[in-house]
Structure formats: structure tokens, C-alpha cells
Amino acid sequence: MATVEIIDLVKRYRSTQALRGIDLRFEPGRVSGVLGENGSGKSTLFRILAGVTRPTRGSVLIDGENVGVETRRMSAYLPEIDSFYTWMSIEEQLKFIGSFHPGWNAAKARELTHFMGLDSSARIGELSKGQRARLKFIVAFSWPSRLVLMDEPLGGIDPPSRTRILRAMMQEFRAEEQTILISTHLVNEIEEFVDDVVFLHDGEIALQGNADALRNDRGASLSQMFEEVLS
């Protein structure tokens, strides 16, 4: 069974259509890149998968269940926007989120906090944008969620640290069988980590498939495909 199964998903805001009837499947244990320029529908897709936005039409199943309380229990969603409580300390924020997830691993959260070079007693309101971005990774990988939804997770993190952090997350901190979806327009940063890719353009799927197969077929890197497909 696919971790995520999307059928004819449409999301319409008042005057714009963010998603125009897309069909997608994300298999267990795979890392998928959802790539597209600003306004292509990536964030809307992630919000719907996280259950914070309702689709206008279509069906979304996570582990065979319609999006709701149960699917939110098995998903770690990290929006592009900073959604942390600025008056909390890092430790309080992690404890707050962790209390809703029985599988939360406080020791792993501490290890990740140390890895990210953050002080757990620091107030979130006093963190830099890059430090808050690192905190998102801690939230995502401190428990063995079935699905990790990371919407533009690299924004704010200095370029030299991006690959180091992503590599550590994928190789050291990721739980087994965890399905990871990363949306970004920084394609070259995630190129080496993704198994599958979906290119979104204007709310529609422009191209999708296995990353290696696409690279072989087209003789191009994902970054080059991004330029081609979305131009």
C-alpha cells in the first residue's frame, strides 16, 4: 500500500486554482522531491497532506486513511512559514509537540538539538531564521512518523550547512520506512537525496518519476530538468 495516494486533487482559492486535478502516489520508505517554482502548488499540496487545508475536490489517503486526526498522528509537517511559538524555549516547543506523539523520542530530540548546535533553553523568538529552520528538522526527525512533509526546509540555512544537515538526516536520524517529501526550488541541494521526483507547474504535474530513471532517460541532472520542464 502506498503511504500517500492522491486522486484528482483540486484546490481552488477564490480567484486562483492552486491544484488542477493531480494524481500521485508516494511509496513507503522513499524520499521524494516535489519541485516547482513559486506558486506552482507545492505548499498547497503539503498543507492538504498535513490536514491543515481542505481540498476542493479529490481524494487523499495516507496509509489508506482519509486525511484527519489519525493521519495527522502519523505525519510530521514542517511548513515553509515559521509556525513555532516565539515565547517558548526550544525545549518547551519540542515537549509541546512531542506530547501529542506517543513515539516521540526525547533523547533523540536532545541529540538532534546538539547536532544542530542549538541551545535547548534558548527562546525561539531570539533565534535567527537559520536556527529556526534547523529546529524544523529536529521536530521532523525526533519521532518515527510514517510521513515527513518538509516544505522548503532549507530556506535560511547557510549553503555550506545544507548538504551536511540533509545528509545527516537521511543517513543517521531518519527512521526506517519513513516516507519523506521535500518541496523546494533549490533542486541542486536535494539532488543526491531523492529517490523520486515530481515537477509541479501551475498546479499540474509537469513531470514525475524515479530520479535515476529520469536522469538516464533525459541525460540531464534534476536541476537541468527543472530548468527545461518549467521554462
Binding site: 498543507r47 498535513a50 490536514g51 495527522r72 498522528r73 501529542f100 506523539h101
Partner: peptide, 10 residues
């Protein structure tokens, strides 16, 4: 913008 966090809670 903390509603993203609160609405994503199970």
C-alpha cells in the same frame, strides 16, 4: 502563523 502548527496536531 502558529495556526499551521496547531492545525497539524493530531
Amino acid at each position: 502563523q502558529t495556526h499551521y502548527q496547531i492545525l497539524a496536531l493530531p
